[in-house]
Design a protein around this nucleic acid. Structure first.
Lengths: 156, 156
DNA sequence: TATTGTTATACTCTATAACTATA
DNA sequence: TATAGTTATAGAGTATAACAATA
């Protein structure tokens, strides 16, 4: 979602300040837009976007998800995952392995190059995240992560 | 950003569980997707989407923002605000008043009907937000809002 | 019958650059 | 010279429905 806009600090806090500041949905949308813009900027030097980076992030852990599982976890449409995996495969970063247990399914795994690129991108992404969270202490960051988890995974 | 996908609770927590759970950027994106889907569902019966609802929400407070200020605050491109205000104006919910102090600028104000529709939509949106935040206590919700503010408004 | 990956399609959103009228 | 609103346009993302292969 979200992205950047013609946002300068002065205009943002000019005539429009207080409203919606208690609206968690709005704050979530705006915080996500800030984070997404920073994340994309951090990760584009490696030929990635936040979305393709997140696919890489999931598979380098060795969890060997199917495309269906990737879609559910990342809240993407399965058809969107097709093109994301296509793109990563064309770049030589991931591979589709047939799932021996289910011949309909693909298991998405990183290539060596995929792991190497991810390692670099991860460092940049984490630096960007630290910058976005600059106004929070470490304890507050941990707390934010915990609170967000409860919203992000309603059933867990 | 984000939207809905073929997400059922079982698949989401199947093979892919732990990874990225400490990644605030990811949690932010996923939480926003959940919140956005719920918000849109809540507000569509009133002919609104989250975006047009948020424009209404800003102007019913009487802050009389210019389109430029709306764009900055909502982190939208000014050209996007044009079509959002067009849409709301066609629906009879807002009006563009000339700014007496700057003849280039429009001030966006709600009509009576806009206020009435907003009042109903607000109730639905807040109910949806409460549902999204169901796993948090009131104190946790307030804390989440405060932590998100620090991320959403880096300069404030 | 239901599900996985895929394709196609339509729609929305995003980003950029221009243009006009003002400042 | 810069800014507000607008328009146009290209690109990215999203949502839906269909299909073949497999369960």
């Amino acid at each position: 979602m979200g992205a950047d806009a013609g946002s300068d600090a002065a205009a943002e806090t000019a005539a429009v300040t207080a409203p919606l500041s208690a609206d968690v949905a709005f704050l979530l949308a705006r915080a996500n837009a800030v984070s997404l813009a920073a994340g994309n900027a951090a990760v584009t030097p490696f030929g990635l976007k936040v979305r393709s980076y997140s696919v890489l992030a999931l598979i380098v852990t060795g969890s060997r998800p199917s495309q269906r599982e990737l879609a559910a976890y990342l809240r993407l449409d399965p058809s969107r995952v097709v093109s994301l995996v296509d793109e990563l495969e064309r770049a030589g970063l991931v591979r589709r392995d047939p799932d021996p247990a289910d011949r309909r399914a693909n298991v998405v795994v990183p290539t060596d190059q995929g792991r190497a690129v991810y390692a670099q991108a991860e460092a940049a992404a984490h630096a960007a995240e630290r910058a976005v969270l600059a106004r929070l202490t470490d304890a507050q960051r941990a707390q934010l992560a915990e609170l967000l988890s409860a919203v992000a995974f309603p059933t867990a």
